[in-house]
């Protein structure tokens, strides 16, 4: 039973990693840019939900979709103002751009909201329950379910809509896509918007149980980078799978040794995968 509990807990947290990783992989896949500031968009959404809750009494479950819409436009704006300038630049310049954005967003959060941990102690989803001999924490289950639904919606968007097809075309060959009449610049903006909206949903759902600090986003994004690498850079399904694996490995590792060591197992797994399959489980090339 204890193995079952660890597995289920790992999968639930893994769904959040999966969602974060899918957004990262989307941007990398479409434009070959690693968005180091991905977690910071999540952090912004957490603060957004926290302040709506404390100032207006709005439940995070309601403010999460608002955060997603807002963060869509933030993502498009970041693309237009910053990323567009480094599209043709060297990879180093691109890394500095998104890593600089991470530093800027974290520092701004420290400045505006201090480093105190904020929590939302009571929300609609608070509470625990037991099912088939397993224990469940309400906020975690709802966050996992919400992440799964968002991941499914993301998959549907990419694989079942016209815009998603354009996105895939640009990802495979941007020049050829332009010749099909696809405005790659617009598609890049949409990719940023969708990626940021997805990670904002993760942040909003996490705000019901996870302590909010300027570093909260980074704590989730770092393992998500590993998930992307494990799944294969640019593969959306791979990122999802990688997220689940990370969740289970981290939870099991932490449980059977000490929570202090949980990240160790994640990075050990990462090294293993890199040696065994450098392009990840579902990666190409």
């Amino acid at each position: 039973m204890i193995y079952g509990q660890v597995l289920v807990d790992g999968l639930i947290v893994g769904l959040i990693f999966a969602l974060v990783a899918m957004g990262l992989s989307l941007i990398y896949g479409v434009m070959n840019i690693v968005n180091f500031a991905h977690g910071e968009f999540m952090m912004l959404a957490m603060y957004f939900c926290f302040f709506l809750w404390i100032l207006a009494g709005i439940d995070p479950l309601l403010s999460t979709p608002i955060a997603a819409v807002l963060m869509y436009f933030v993502g498009v704006a970041v693309y237009r103002v910053l990323i567009r300038q480094v599209l043709q630049a060297t990879m180093v310049a691109q890394i500095f751009a998104t890593f600089g954005l991470l530093l800027f967003m974290q520092a701004s959060a420290h400045f505006l909201w201090k480093s105190d941990a904020r929590t939302i102690p009571q929300s609609w989803v608070s509470g625990q329950f037991q099912l088939g001999g397993l224990f469940f924490n309400g906020p975690e289950v709802v966050a996992g379910a919400g992440a799964l639904m968002t991941a499914a919606a993301l998959y549907w968007f990419i694989h079942r809509t016209e815009t998603g097809l354009a996105l895939q075309a640009v990802a495979e060959d941007a020049q050829a896509a332009r010749l099909m009449g696809i405005d790659s610049d617009r598609v890049f903006g949409i990719a940023w918007g969708v990626s940021c909206a997805a990670v904002a949903i993760g942040g909003g759902l996490l705000s019901t149980y996870y302590a909010i600090t300027p570093l909260s986003g980074a704590r989730w994004a770092l393992p998500a980078f590993v998930a992307v690498a494990i799944g294969g850079f640019g593969s959306i399904s791979g990122a999802f799978l990688g997220g689940l694996i990370i969740g289970v490995v981290q939870t099991a590792g932490g449980f059977f040794t000490s929570p202090n060591y949980k990240h160790l197992f994640v990075f050990a797994l990462y090294l293993l995968v890199v040696f065994w399959r450098p392009y990840g489980l579902l990666g190409r090339r």
Binding site: L165, A166, Q168, A169, E172, D173, A176, A177, M180, I182, R284
Partner: peptide
Amino acid sequence: FPTLTVRQNLLL
């Protein structure tokens, strides 16, 4: 578009 199907290439 190598990992898209023939039909998807045509639709594009």
